[in-house]
């Protein structure tokens, strides 16, 4: 997800479109990205966090969260 404070023009365009379609009450839309990884059992959550820090997210502008399932 783009961090709070970073303008998300795509999210803003989606919010306008929802309003134009008659969906009222949508105060804000933030658009993000889901990346699914198919992992060996040997890969830890810590490894995935390192992947996020080094490539999957740009932490200058994006926040991320990891879910292992």
């Amino acid at each position: 997800m783009l961090k709070t404070g970073v303008l998300d023009p795509q999210g803003e365009a989606v919010r306008h479109a929802l309003g134009a379609m008659g969906f009222d009450g949508v105060n804000g839309v933030r658009q993000g990205k889901v990346i699914e990884l198919d992992l060996d059992d040997s890969v830890s959550e810590e490894d995935v966090t390192r992947m996020c820090e080094q490539l999957l997210a740009n932490t200058v502008i994006e926040s991320y969260s990891v879910e292992m399932g």
Binding site: V6, L7, V60
Partner: peptide, 17 residues
């Protein structure tokens, strides 16, 4: 250059999309 960290900041989608 921003993605490598050689320069600070980032380039986002144009505000006009």
């Amino acid at each position: 250059l921003t993605e490598t960290g050689l320069l600070p900041g980032a380039l986002l989608r144009n505000s006009g999309l």
